[in-house]
Amino acid sequence: MVLIYIDHADNQIKKATQEAISYGAAIAKLLNCSAEALILGAVEDDLTELGKLGAQKVHQLKNESLNTFDAKVHSNLIATAAKSLGATVVIFAHNINGKALAPAVAVKLSAGIVTGACRLPSLQDGFEVTKTVFSGKAFASIKIESPIKVIAINQNSFGVHPYENTALVQSIDLPIPPASIKVTNINKVKGEIPLTEASLVVSGGRGLRGPENWGILLDLAKALGAATACSRPVSDSDWRPHHEHVGQTGIQIAPDLYIAIGISGAIQHLAGVNRSKTIVVINKDSEAPFFKAADYGVIGDAFEVVPALTAAILKMKHNQ
């Protein structure tokens, strides 16, 4: 059985989890077994609807205390559930909580693990999973040799595939270990699209010359419904908050569309964004290395090009 862990916050299942369910369902099909999901805590979403993503069953440990994330408690419960349900493959989204949980669960199940997986496993010679390495600059195919396998799937690498199922929701009863973490504050930036969950990202670099010039970028992001990001020099100069820094030492993202404005495209920056499906580069320097990694390029002054692009997008949306 393939068991998929459902990550949630604010009473909602996270987008990355939807993809993980589809990925787990596809692996279950390869292995000719069932795809079942596990949720710790409660959400407002209708869990039977997870059938549409490929889950045949959803096991729920409905306890309000589990809506607070505690890596030690959650990984213990997931491992115990995986054992009692007889899971042979356990799937996580390679997102913030998935990174905290999947390796601990692998240890508890004596399972080999591949995190950052980006394709379905190949079963030709054992069980091989391809993952991104060197910050997206290469792929590695990794053979898992243990009976139980743990895989964490990169966000936006497999997609969500529709099924015509209704999932059977069953409650599971496990003793809950004592909390090891006290959450004293949660601070969410209101109205902002989380960068790691965003399908569209607009990003700015030093070419914008100063934080006072970010308005044109924010307008474009608003018109698109995109999240905003920046290069390392920009966050290091405190023009933008640290959590917007994408690159090798910031966060790595893989949106459908990445628009880079006034970013030259140093190798360390590319490492954070090169898994984006489509890259648009706007730069007045035709020699900027980013153009080599781009799908579409505009050589021109950002202060003219970006407002024009925003206007074109608004026009397109208006005509729809």
């Binding site: 916050a9 996270k14 994330f69 997102n95 913030i96 973490i181 006290k182 959450v183 004293t184 504050n185 949660i186 601070n187 969410k188 930036v189 902002e192 699209i193 989380p194 790691t196 969950e197 959590h243």
Partner: peptide
């Protein structure tokens, strides 16, 4: 955390 921070 997604879209913010949490104090532990």
């Amino acid at each position: 955390i997604e879209g913010g921070e949490e104090t532990n």
